[in-house]
Design a protein around this nucleic acid. Structure first.
Lengths: 180, 180
DNA sequence: GAAGTGTGTGAGTGCACACTTACAAACAAA
DNA sequence: TTTGTTTGTAAGTGTGCACTCACACACTTC
């Protein structure tokens, strides 16, 4: 017994988030995830219920990591005002997505929400993050909305590579956005 | 000669935007676009240079329609302040994406920006829209940035179906967003 | 009406990929 | 040592899809 199935699942999920992030659900073969995890394709199918089950589980892992990072970020502004706590959370999120995998995975997941199981996973992820942000920061609805609006703008900036575009319109969109 | 190739291309592009919007680039076969346009798959391949060429052309058509709608919306606030013009543009955009095709296509395009030709098409589209918004509204960088940030939030709301979620976190995210 | 040009398709071809099955090796319990 | 369980894989199977090609029909020009 080389390792437990549960440990393997964690390894595979980490690989899955990275690999799915690049090309998305439909364009990444399960063999690519298996190769990145260092096991055979057949075993991935034994560990997860089909490619869809694998993707949904990866989405859960992705949002868990995001929630954990934001939670840790909030600890940096103990007893702060809503604005200060939101700012600390935003900073923690910006650091987390420096490697782009978690950000790109969210975009990929959002694009395949026509699959009901994935739509539900995305909603569950944002429910987890949004409820924590609102409760922990004690922020108003409008503040929470703004927090997520600029987060989504950040996704556009990264996927379109706008930080590399020197033209004025792109600089307007990227101005002040942390670490895209 | 039943119709000209150019007229056919327009028909096919309209069909392509609708069909790609649902399931995305990789998950939609060219046969689906051909069927929606009422012609054979083989002829689609003659009209466009491969599936990629078709998608890139559809992206162009999508952003052209968005730019035209925003331009028309701006006409409703002639001589208005930047805030008023941006508001009129936002209203026009909200009306345009009521059928969801143009919104979903943007999300799908954003998800396949690992393909360089598509990334360039997305940048070209946002360049077209953003430069017009900034010039026509006479708005500040921050105002333009906010305009697009809340536009991206709108994409999240629609793809995740948040307008159907009655929970407080979802209502906070959707509050005041026009017509999602 | 013959020859040329543009519009349109049916019938393939080849390959990638989701998923299965049969089988093997490691470990545990008796 | 045998029996059972879990981890792991090599080698398929079937299907869907991007792309091609040979061919047909419409229309024009001379």
């Amino acid at each position: 017994m080389r390792s437990t199935a549960e440990a393997r699942r964690v390894t595979v999920l980490n690989a899955a988030v990275s690999v799915f992030a690049r090309a998305g659900f439909h364009a990444t073969p399960v063999t690519a995830v298996a190769a990145a995890a260092g096991i055979s394709e057949a075993y991935v199918f034994r560990l997860f219920s089909g490619k869809l089950g694998l993707f949904v589980a990866a989405a859960g892992a992705c949002f868990d990591r995001i929630a954990a990072a934001i939670e840790a970020g909030a600890e940096r502004a103990p007893g702060g005002s809503p604005e200060e706590v939101l700012d600390a959370m935003g900073g923690a999120y910006a650091e987390l997505i420096a490697d782009r995998d978690l950000l790109l995975f969210q975009v990929q997941a959002q694009a395949v929400t026509d699959i009901p199981e994935i739509a539900e996973a995305v909603r569950a992820g944002y429910r987890q993050v949004a409820t924590f942000v609102q409760a922990r920061a004690g922020a108003s609805d409008a503040q929470v909305q703004q927090f997520f609006a600029y987060g989504q703008l950040c996704h556009l900036i990264v996927t379109a590579g706008l930080e590399q575009v020197p033209e004025p319109w792109a600089r307007a969109l990227t101005a002040g956005i942390r670490h895209p």
